[in-house]
Design a protein around this nucleic acid. Structure first.
Lengths: 153, 153
DNA sequence: AATAATTATTTTGTGAACAATTTAATTGCG
DNA sequence: CGCAATTAAATTGTTCACAAAATAATTATT
C-alpha cells in the first residue's frame, strides 16, 4: 500500500515546513512585542542585541559581535554605524591590527543600560508562559539551531 | 536579602531575552538551509510561503495571504509583484469588490509545485531531530506566538 | 442621497539580512 | 625577503518587514 506510506511521510515532511514557519512567525511576533519597548531606547531589536553584547564585553571587534549574534559584517557595519550616529558607540581601527574595527561604548551607551533593564520584564510578561517552559523551549531551539548550522552549506 | 532575590529574578528575566534570541537566530539558520533548496525554484523563503498558501487555495485576495502568513500588504505587495514578474501568479482587481486584488496561479505557478515537493525532505534532514520532537516544538512555538500576538499592541 | 467611516491595497522611507565583490592589512611559505 | 593566501571590514545590490501616509472603493449613518 504505497498510498498510506506516502501519506505518512507526507505528514512528517510537511511538519518541517510547519516548524520553520512557526519559528519564522514567532520571531516576527517577538519583534512586534519588543518594538514599543525598544522604541523608548531608540533601538531596533538587532541594535539591542548588539548593545547587550557590548554591555557584557566592551571594546570588541566587529567580527566578535558577528560571532555572538550570528550576523556578518555586511549586516553589522551599517547597524554599528547607526549606533555610532546615535552616539552610543565609537568605531576605531585597532592599532595592533589595522584590519579590525573595535567597537567601544560611549558614556551614553553605558548609561542606556539602566533604561534597558525594564525591557526583559515586559517580554517575560508578554510570553505568558512559566519559566521552566521557556527554559526548555530555549534549549530545544538552540539544539535545533546547532543542527541547522551543521547542515548548512 | 534583596541581593539573592534580585539575582533570581534577573536570571528569569534574562531568559526571555535568551529565548527571543534563540527564536531569532533559529529563524536565520532555517533561512540559510532553505536558501539553496529554494534557489533552484527561483524563490525566496517568504515567496515560497506565499506559493504554499496558493497551492492550498488559489485565487485569494492579498489580505487572505497576509492573514495566513502574518504579513501586511506593505510586505506582500512588492513580493507578489515579483512572483508576477516571474510568471508564477497574476494580480487582478476583483470585479465584485474593486478594492481587492486577487492572486491567481499561472500554469507555471501550478507546475512549480512538483519541483517544490523535494524541499521538505531537505529541511527535515537538516533539522536532525525526531518527528515527535519537531511536532512538540512546533506546537509550543505556536502557543508562544499566540501569547505574543495577544500581548502586542 | 450626501457624507462620514471603514476597508483593501499601494506607496514611501527606514532598517535589517545576506551574497558577492572590493579594499586593505596580516600571515604563511618557499 | 617577496609574493601568495588569508583575514577583517566595507560596499553594492536584492529582498524582506513594517510604520505611516496616500489612494480608491465600499459600507454605514444621518
Amino acid at each position: 500500500m504505497p498510498k498510506s506510506r506516502d501519506a505518512a511521510s507526507d505528514t512528517a515532511l510537511k511538519l518541517s515546513n510547519q516548524l520553520c514557519f512557526a519559528v519564522y512567525s514567532t520571531a516576527l511576533a517577538f519583534n512586534a512585542v519588543y518594538k514599543p519597548l525598544l522604541e523608548r531606547l531608540g533601538l531596533t531589536y538587532p541594535q539591542y542585541l548588539a548593545m547587550l553584547a557590548l554591555w557584557e564585553q566592551d571594546d570588541v571587534p566587529v567580527k566578535e559581535i558577528g560571532r555572538l549574534l550570528h550576523l556578518d559584517s555586511g549586516t553589522l557595519t551599517p547597524l554599528l554605524k547607526r549606533l555610532e550616529t546615535a552616539g552610543l558607540v565609537t568605531r576605531t581601527r585597532h592599532r595592533e591590527d589595522e584590519r579590525q574595527v573595535r567597537i567601544t561604548l560611549t558614556a551614553a551607551g553605558r548609561a542606556l543600560r539602566e533604561q534597558a533593564k525594564a525591557v526583559p520584564l515586559g517580554i517575560f510578561e508578554a510570553c505568558g508562559l512559566s519559566t521552566p517552559t521557556l527554559l526548555k523551549l530555549k534549549d530545544e531551539l538552540i539544539t535545533l539551531r546547532e543542527r541547522l548550522d551543521a547542515a548548512a552549506p
